[in-house]
Write a protein that binds this DNA or RNA. Structure first.
Length: 454
RNA sequence: GUGAAUGUAGCUCAGUUGGUUAGAGCGCCUGAUUGUGGUUCAGGAGGUCGCGGGUUCGAGCCCCGUCUUUCACCCCA
């Protein structure tokens, strides 16, 4: 049969993995530097844990897992009915699917917090690096399986957390050498906007439409809002927002506080943004009043990070959610977090040629022992063990094949040193150490080789 | 889910209006050099032309379907 992969999934070669790990290390280092500790959760969750948290679009994109052994069920008639219903529209049936692959790391985290609430010290700062799955149509920068790197603080309403996440974001991308813009906004500002134009009940329609302004233009947005049932009066009052152009954070704040002065929630949103920015400064930040984000659960600050160099969707995003744990039975716990998408960050690095491969990192093989035969390779196994005990990554070529083949293996893997231990070398204890970059060879005993490697 | 493009050797790509045995560069293998890689030289292997149908005397090329990748919409990391 012809080997193939499910649509939207990928293999990663050793070269790709070293590069992915480089991104991962940068992120993980920043997370740890700020006191976040790691957790993991299962790839699968109960379907009920996930549904209804991401909005209608999100629910459509959940990968549901078909129950096993459905052929043994005693409820086949009910199952058939449920299946027919599922063919009509997106319905859930516990008889058919009670599990789903996780769609993000935030909702499983909320579930985790509630289940472990008695073991957790709040505020709880956790990070989590795991794949997530979305049944989206794949294209560039969009995969059905991708890895998210999340850092969240839960159990604290302090805006210092938002500021810290902004600083972490800056740290991650500066260590990767990528120029980015951190777009921020606040759901309370959007709510205030809906409030002041008299369209409180149309908040979601309003934000979704707003989000598209720079893509489809004012007129199209107005048309969409009319279609959603927004009154002419409301639209008229939105006009200054449509006409507003970002110049600076200060000017935007000034504009917003005037616009929203009669809205309690709107004013609160403006104050929050102001405070966050007081803590972390405005470097690399754009206050984007059209930023909305699709996920339902955000209630305060929202972030989105875009590359300044590459044309790709957001490479990180997040925000504050006031009551995600509420549905699981623990209310009054607010959290805020950010998620880095390493697959997209990889694509940006690739597009911008940011790799600067010092391919011989200390993680790859430093020394290869050439295999001359049974007795010699047995000797080399012991010698290699000695090197490994000193922390030097070493390998013995497994087959007794032509030296040319073994040398080009070392060359291909960019192994910097090769040890030649033939019968003569073994007899005298003076092994031949070849530097593969310069071509120089020295006769050294094992201790001297170890010393030279360190 | 809607609309559109794409697929030829391991990789990047040629392939004329449908016409004999489908090519190149790089990579790979062998030898020159049986204890020395990266350079050079000589030789070699490798293709159901994504897959399945159809039209035709004849299809890599035309038609239909399907899958993959990509682009736009939608949404997002």
């Amino acid at each position: 049969m012809k080997p193939s992969l499910p649509k939207g999934t990928r293999d990663f070669t050793p070269v790709e993995m070293t590069r992915r790990n480089r991104i991962l290390d940068s992120i993980q280092k920043v997370f740890r530097l700020h006191g976040y500790s790691q957790i993991e959760t299962p790839a699968m969750e109960n379907l009920t844990t996930l549904t209804g948290k991401y909005g209608d679009e999100g629910d459509q994109l959940l990968y549901k897992v078909l129950n096993s052994r459905i052929h043994e069920s005693g409820k086949k008639n009910e199952m058939l009915d449920d299946f027919k219903r599922a063919l009509e529209k997106n319905t859930n049936s516990e008889l058919l699917t009670e599990r789903a692959l996780r769609y993000d790391l935030t909702v499983p985290f909320a579930r985790f917090v509630v289940m472990h609430q008695n073991e957790i010290q709040f505020p709880f700062k956790r990070y989590q690096i795991q794949p997530v799955w979305r049944a989206d149509r794949p294209q560039k920068g969009r995969y059905r399986e991708f890895v998210q790197c999340d850092a969240d603080v839960i159990g604290s309403t302090s805006l210092l957390n938002e500021a810290e996440l902004v600083e972490m974001t800056r740290a991650v991308f500066s260590s990767l050498g990528l120029a980015v813009t951190i777009k921020i906004n606040n759901r309370k500002i959007l709510a205030g906007l809906a409030d002041t134009v008299g369209a409180k009940d149309k908040l979601i329609d309003l934000t979704v439409a707003m989000d598209k302004i720079d893509k489809i233009g004012h007129e199209q947005v107005v048309a969409e809002l009319v279609a959603k049932g927004l009154s002419n009066d409301s639209i008229e009052r939105l006009k200054p927002v449509f006409d507003f152009k970002f110049e600076s954070v200060d000017k935007t704040l000034e504009f917003l506080s005037k616009l929203l002065e009669n809205s309690e929630i709107g004013t609160k949103g403006v104050m929050e943004v102001q405070q966050v920015l007081n803590h972390c400064g405005t470097e690399n930040i754009e206050l984007d009043i059209t930023l909305a984000r699709g996920l339902n659960y955000y209630t305060g600050a929202i972030f989105e990070v875009k590359s300044n160099e590459a044309q790709i969707g957001s490479i990180a995003g997040g925000g504050r959610y006031d009551d995600l744990t509420g549905v699981f039975g623990l209310s009054g716990v607010s959290g805020v977090g950010i998620s880095f998408g390493i697959d997209r960050i990889y694509d940006v690095m690739e597009e911008c040629h940011k790799w600067d491969d010092g391919l011989n990192s200390k993680d790859s093989t430093r020394v290869l022992f050439v295999n001359f035969g049974e007795a010699e390779s047995s000797y080399c196994m012991k010698a290699a063990r000695k090197l490994r005990e000193s922390g030097i990554n070493s390998e013995v070529y497994p087959d007794t094949v032509k030296m040319k083949k073994q040398m080009s293996y070392a060359d291909d893997k960019q192994i910097p040193y090769v040890v030649l231990a033939g019968s003569e070398e073994i007899a005298t204890g003076q092994l031949t150490l070849r530097n593969m970059v310069t071509g120089e060879q020295q006769k050294l005993n094992l201790e001297e080789i170890i010393k030279q490697m360190q």
